[in-house]
Nucleic acid binder design. Structure first.
Lengths: 124, 124
DNA sequence: TTCATCTACAACCATTTGGTTGTACGTTAG
DNA sequence: CTAACGTACAACCAAATGGTTGTAGATGAA
């Protein structure tokens, strides 16, 4: 359950893998059901080798794994990797909320009048 | 509420901007309080120009904006951009959950109806 | 076996990235 | 005014990216 040690390098690879339209689309397709690399490649206007490289990038980022089935290689998504990316974004937002909170503290030096929240509410 | 039209290109820029340790660190620093580019540059073992370029990448991704104060340029974070990235990840997770749900459906059904579509018509 | 399919990977190429240095310009402090 | 500071931007470079083609190895089908 412990999301094992998110290093800088792993986050670099994660976000880099997500930073390409084709790769995000591959993820969307595979997240709905495993596909072989060949089947995937049929969907894009590029060579099989190019799609293969994209899958490799996703794989090194931990976003997918491959599993042999006969002569095919099925691409399986790893939802936990998405969770790791989200965790990094959450951390940023937490910092931001922290700042807002500190600012509120400064604005309301007297704890008794510390009704907080100057309009910067939450999204979700 | 409506997060204005997330295009492929904007997501590319967003995730690309996040795919670098230095840039994520810049975000963390700026999210806690605005800093000038010079002050930021003091924190990293690289030239001022390099940091300037990183800030430009963050800016084109919509993650920060710059605001002049005298001769300084303050870097301000834009939390909504982080929210856009999160939305993209949420969408992926939703697809994944959807698959699980469909799989449960299939398991509850007659096995003979469980056919896979060989060529889902998609084009470009 | 023979043949078609799926995958792996090398070699190559153009473009982008991430860094550097150098120069120029606006602004603030003395 | 002059000097120092903060910024902008160009030119350059090595390395990584994203694509190509070609070749070769496994595997399944006939």
């Amino acid at each position: 359950m412990v999301v094992d040690e998110v290093t800088d390098g792993s986050l670099d690879r994660l976000f880099h893998a997500l930073a390409d339209t084709t790769r995000r689309d591959i993820l969307r397709r595979c997240v709905q059901g495993e596909l072989s690399v060949s089947r995937l490649a049929e969907a894009y206007p590029m060579s099989f080798a190019a799609v293969q490289k994209h899958v490799t990038v996703l794989e090194r980022a931990g976003l997918v794994t491959k599993q042999r089935r006969g002569r095919e290689q099925l691409v399986l998504t790893e939802p936990e990797a998405v969770a790791r990316a989200r965790q990094a974004l959450d951390e940023l937002e937490a910092l931001w909320r922290g700042r807002v909170e500190r600012m509120s503290h400064l604005l309301a030096q007297d704890p008794r009048t510390a009704d907080h929240d100057p309009q910067e509410g939450q999204d979700r």
